[in-house]
Design a binder for these strands. Sequence first.
DNA 1: CGGCATCCCCCGGGATACTG
DNA 2: CAGTATCCCGGGGGATGCCG
Lengths: 135, 135
Amino acid sequence: MTSSTQRSARGHRGDLFDPQCPTRRLLDRIGTKWTSMVIKVLAEASTEEVRFAQLQRRMPGVSQKMLSVTLRGLTRDGLVDRRVEASVPPRVYYRLTPLGLTLEEPLARIREWAEEHMAEVDRANRRSDERTTDS
Amino acid sequence: MTSSTQRSARGHRGDLFDPQCPTRRLLDRIGTKWTSMVIKVLAEASTEEVRFAQLQRRMPGVSQKMLSVTLRGLTRDGLVDRRVEASVPPRVYYRLTPLGLTLEEPLARIREWAEEHMAEVDRANRRSDERTTDS
DNA sequence: CGGCATCCCCCGGGATACTG
DNA sequence: CAGTATCCCGGGGGATGCCG
């Protein structure tokens, strides 16, 4: 991480953005609720396009709004490809770009770590809870 | 930080969809602003302990509050080890636990991706902007 | 020195309703 | 069917201030 977040001691408006720390920005992205799930679902579809409604069906709990917002962001970022079929009713297809596909890799590592270790994290949490709960 | 007093989730590997999903929770964690930076700095210190003030110095921009909150969370999670030296003034030392150390790996992959590809993401963003801003 | 507590602002993101 | 526009709430997180 190479930031160096400098800002005047008093600017209360959120300007003076973090002068690009790439890692920070990437974490913000994949940290947003639905981003990594979209990438995973699209990665599972391989190179096949997936329609909006299909995506939504494969992502229980996502609202239309958030799926839409998430996809727009990923499209802007060049990670997702969007194709509109001008029919009635309209159909919109999505798939990962080559760039997006390369992100699946590190994300998979994160997923693996979670599956493998989060149980232990839970145990650690319970241990802490006990210590504070007793007294 | 999530206040997880929740219990396990056995998983089929696919349930990134479970709100209780380990991956979701991990992403929430590492998505919070300072978590991954703390892990990186502590990882760089290897097994050596690092004092609070040292950490803060190595993380430009972090407030005392947020560093404190972040460290408490990581300690609860069993990723960071905390040792208090009851002197006057008091000294508090931190280092990664073995568990925390294993998280450095996947985080490094994420960092690498960011360093390697965020420039391309920026280009994609600029291209989108032109299309909407053009006139 | 380390780290609680307090105040407060901002924005992610859910629910709902409306257009093409 | 896909996407946009409103409204609204909770919580992340910055800026103090105080205490062991």
